[in-house]
Amino acid sequence: MTDLWTGIVVGSFALDIAALMVIGHYRREWTRQRLLRRMDHHHCWEVMRQRR
């Protein structure tokens, strides 16, 4: 019975760590997408083009 509980505790700990890693991954990807959307490449291109 002790082996069963040890397996359950270790397995749940591993699943918790994996869930935290997945959450961190998606949070970083969401932040990266948000930052890329904020970059206005067309505006920068027009400013550089009008300098000539």
Rank of each mutant, 00 (worst) to 15 (best):
W30D: 07
G7A: 05
E46Q: 07
R28P: 00
G24F: 00
T2N: 11
R49S: 06
D40K: 12
I23L: 03
L35N: 13
M21N: 03
W45Y: 14
L35M: 14
R51I: 06
M1N: 11
R49D: 08
L36W: 06
Q50L: 01
H42I: 10
R28G: 01
A19D: 03
H43F: 11
R49A: 13
L15A: 15
R34S: 12
M48Q: 10
H41I: 14
L20H: 04
W30N: 05
Q50K: 02
L4I: 12
T31H: 06
T6H: 03
S12F: 11
H42C: 03
T31K: 12
M21H: 01
V9G: 01
S12L: 15
G24R: 01
I23V: 06
M1Q: 10
T31L: 09
I8N: 02
E46N: 05
D3E: 12
L35W: 08
H25M: 02
R37S: 12
R38T: 08
V10A: 11
V9Q: 08
M48S: 07
L20Y: 05
W45G: 01
R32D: 10
C44R: 15
R32H: 04
T2M: 09
D16N: 07
D3I: 04
F13A: 15
C44G: 07
Q50D: 09
A19I: 01
R52H: 04
G24A: 02
V22Q: 03
R52D: 04
C44A: 15
G7R: 04
H42K: 14
L36C: 03
S12T: 15
Q50M: 01
D40C: 09
V10T: 14
T6M: 03
G11E: 05
G11N: 05
W45R: 10
R49W: 05
I8W: 03
C44K: 14
R37C: 09
R38F: 07
W5G: 01
R51K: 10
R37H: 13
L35S: 10
M48Y: 10
R32W: 04
W5M: 11
E29D: 05
R34T: 11
R37D: 15
V47A: 12
S12E: 14
R32V: 05
T6K: 08
A19Y: 02
H43K: 14
R27V: 03
R51N: 04
A14Y: 06
A18H: 01
M48A: 13
M48C: 05
Q50A: 06
H41C: 09
M21I: 06
F13M: 12
E29V: 10
Q50E: 07
A14N: 09
M21T: 04
R34E: 14
H42S: 11
M39L: 15
T2R: 11
L20K: 07
A14D: 07
I17Y: 05
H43Q: 14
M48H: 07
W45T: 08
T2F: 09
M39A: 15
G11S: 11
D3G: 04
V47C: 08
R34A: 14
Q33P: 00
R28M: 02
R32P: 00
V22F: 01
A14M: 10
G24N: 04
H43S: 13
R28D: 03
L35T: 09
H25A: 02
R27Y: 01
M39K: 15
M21Y: 02
V9P: 00
W45K: 08
R52P: 00
H43W: 09
E29A: 06
H25L: 04
L15E: 06
D16W: 09
L4C: 02
D3T: 06
